[in-house]
Design a protein around this nucleic acid. Structure first.
Length: 439
RNA sequence: GGCCCCAUCGUCUAUCGGCUAGGACACGAGCUUUUCAUGCUUGGUAGAGGAGUUCGACUCUCCUUGGGGCUGCCA
C-alpha cells in the first residue's frame, strides 16, 4: 500500500494548455494506469498575476476531452500556502533558509527568503528517462522561496505539495531538470524522501524550435476545434518520444496502458509533424464504429432531416473512409442536403468551362431521364456511363458530372453520389450547370 | 559567459558490438480496366565530423561541431 505509485500533473494555469504540457499529462496518466497507481491533478496557481480561472477551465476541458481522468480531488497550490510558510519557518530555524534584502529585476526592493544551497559536494539523481544526472552544488546559486510580499514561490510550494500529496514519481518537462537539483536539496533539508524523477524532452515545432506561447496551433483546444479526434491526438503525442517496441503505431488505450514504460521514453526532443497527426486522425476516423461516425456526421449537418436511415448509412459508408477531419464533413455533405451548394472555381474551369462539355451533359440528361426510377442505382448508372465510354475510360463523363452535381472535384464515389441524389436532382443539376457554366 | 542535456532517412522511430541499417508519415511510380479516397505493390533518401577501444562500432570512450535547457521576488 505504501509503495503505491502516485504521480501528478501540475500545470500552472497561466495560459491555454499546449501539446507539450498535455503530453506530460499523458505520460503521467499512462504511467499511473500502467503501474496501478494514482494520477493526481495539481493546479499550480501561485503566480497570482498570471493565473486565470479561464485557463483552469480550459485545462479541465482539454483533459476531459482526452480522457485523462484524475484520481483525487484537484489540489490547488494556493490553498496550501499556510503549509508552505510553516515549512519555510522550519527551514529558517534549521538554517537551511535565510532572509535577505534584494532588488528584483523589475526594480522593487524588499526582504525575500532564500534557500541556502550546500556549498560543496555533488547532487545526483537517476532520472528514469535521462539516466544519471549530477551537478556540483557550488554551481547552483541560493534561490528565493518566499517573495517580499510573503507569498511562497514555486520551488518551495512544489516540493511541499509533492510531500503532502505523497508523490512518488515526478514526471515533467525537461525544462525542470535544473530545478530538480534544487528541489532535491529541499527534500533533504526537510528530511523527506526524494521522489523518483523522469524528465521529458520537449516537443519542437517544424522550425525545430521549442513551442513558445506564440505557436498558436499548439494549443490542445485548437485541435479539438479543427476536428481532430482526442484518441488520435493522444496516440500521436504518445508516439512522440515513445514506442511500444514493435511496429505498431495505432494503439488502443488498453494497449497503451499495458505497454507504456517510462524507461523507454526518449531523451531527445521530437518534432511535431502535423501531416502524421492528420494521417493518424484519418486512421481513427476509419476505425470509428459506423453508428458513432454517423452521429458525428448528422450532428454536423443542420439539414439532416428528410432522409431515410438507409440513405444515411449509404452516405456515411462512402464518407467515412475518405474523411481526414471531422470538420470536413459539412462541406462534403453539402450537395446532398441542399441545392444551394457552392461551385469550386477551379473545378468549374477544369471540368465544365470547356467546349463540348455542354453537349455531353445534355446528352447525359436525356439518357438519365430514360432510366426507370427503380433502376436509379449506382451499378446501373455506372453501367450506363461505361457503355458510353466504350472502354476508353470514363473521364470525359465522370468529371463533368461530378462537378455539375456537387460543385466540387472531389467527394464520394460518383455513382454512389448520383444514387444518393436521386434522378430528379441529378437531371436538374446537370441541366442547370450545363446552362450556367458551359460555353 | 557558466553549468547541464542531446545527436539514425525531410519527420517520428527500430537497432541494446555482427547491418545487405528495418518500420511509419511525407514524397515518386504502378495496380484496383471512373473521379476523390481507401487498399495493395514498389522506389529513393539516414548513423554530424575526428580520434580511440575492439576481430568487428550506428551501438562503448574522448574531442570537435551543431542543437536545446537552466542561469527570476515565472512556473
Amino acid at each position: 500500500m505504501s509503495n503505491e505509485v502516485r504521480v501528478r500533473f501540475a500545470p500552472s494555469p497561466t495560459g491555454k494548455v499546449h501539446i507539450g504540457n498535455i503530453r506530460a499529462a499523458i505520460y503521467n496518466w499512462l504511467f499511473a494506469r500502467h503501474t496501478g497507481g494514482r494520477f493526481l491533478l495539481r493546479v499550480e496557481d501561485t503566480d497570482l498575476e498570471r493565473s486565470t480561472p479561464e485557463a483552469i477551465r480550459v485545462l479541465f476541458e482539454c483533459m476531459e476531452w482526452l480522457g485523462l481522468d484524475w484520481d483525487e480531488e484537484v489540489f490547488y497550490q494556493t490553498k496550501n500556502v499556510k503549509r508552505h510558510l510553516e515549512v519555510v519557518d522550519r527551514l529558517l530555524a534549521s538554517g537551511h533558509a535565510y532572509k535577505v534584502e534584494k532588488t528584483s529585476r523589475d526594480g522593487k526592493t524588499g526582504v525575500v527568503t532564500m534557500f541556502r544551497m550546500p556549498k560543496e559536494g555533488t547532487i545526483e539523481f537517476d532520472d528514469i528517462v535521462k539516466g544519471h544526472m549530477a551537478k556540483k552544488a557550488e554551481d547552483i546559486q541560493d534561490f528565493a522561496i518566499v517573495r517580499s510580499d510573503g507569498s511562497p514561490i514555486f520551488h518551495i510550494a512544489n516540493v511541499v505539495d509533492d510531500i503532502d500529496q505523497r508523490v512518488t514519481h515526478i514526471i515533467r518537462g525537461d525544462d525542470h531538470v535544473e530545478n530538480t537539483f534544487k528541489h532535491i536539496c529541499i527534500f533533504r533539508a526537510l528530511g523527506a524522501p526524494v521522489p523518483k524523477y523522469g524528465h521529458l524532452s520537449m516537443i519542437v515545432n517544424q522550425q525545430g524550435k521549442p513551442y513558445s506561447k506564440r505557436d498558436g496551433a499548439a494549443f490542445v483546444g485548437e485541435y479539438r476545434e479543427q476536428g481532430y479526434l482526442p484518441e488520435a491526438l493522444f496516440n500521436y503525442l504518445l508516439l512522440l518520444g515513445w514506442n511500444p517496441g514493435d511496429d505498431r503505431e495505432v494503439l488502443t488505450r488498453e494497449e497503451m496502458i499495458e505497454l507504456f514504460e517510462l524507461e523507454k521514453v526518449h531523451v531527445t526532443a521530437a518534432m511535431f509533424d502535423p501531416k502524421k497527426l492528420a494521417w493518424m486522425n484519418g486512421e481513427y476516423i476509419k476505425r470509428m464504429p459506423k453508428d458513432v461516425f454517423r452521429k458525428e456526421v448528422q450532428s454536423r449537418c443542420a439539414e439532416s432531416a428528410g432522409h431515410s436511415d438507409d440513405w444515411w448509412d449509404y452516405l456515411c459508408d462512402q464518407l467515412q473512409v475518405r474523411t481526414k477531419f471531422l470538420n470536413d464533413i459539412p462541406a462534403a455533405c453539402r450537395c446532398f442536403l441542399s441545392d444551394d451548394y457552392e461551385f469550386d472555381e477551379k473545378a468549374v474551369a477544369k471540368r465544365l468551362a470547356k467546349d463540348g462539355v455542354k453537349a455531353t451533359l445534355l446528352d447525359l440528361v436525356r439518357r438519365f431521364e430514360a432510366v426507370a426510377d427503380a433502376d436509379w442505382t449506382a451499378p446501373t448508372l455506372e453501367e450506363l456511363v461505361k457503355g458510353l465510354s466504350q472502354g476508353n475510360g470514363m473521364g470525359p463523363w465522370v468529371h463533368p458530372i461530378r462537378v455539375a452535381v456537387s460543385g466540387r472535384g472531389e467527394g464520394i464515389g460518383l455513382f454512389e453520389m448520383l444514387q444518393l441524389l436521386g434522378k430528379a436532382k441529378t437531371v436538374a443539376r446537370l441541366r442547370a450547370a450545363a446552362e450556367k457554366y458551359c460555353p
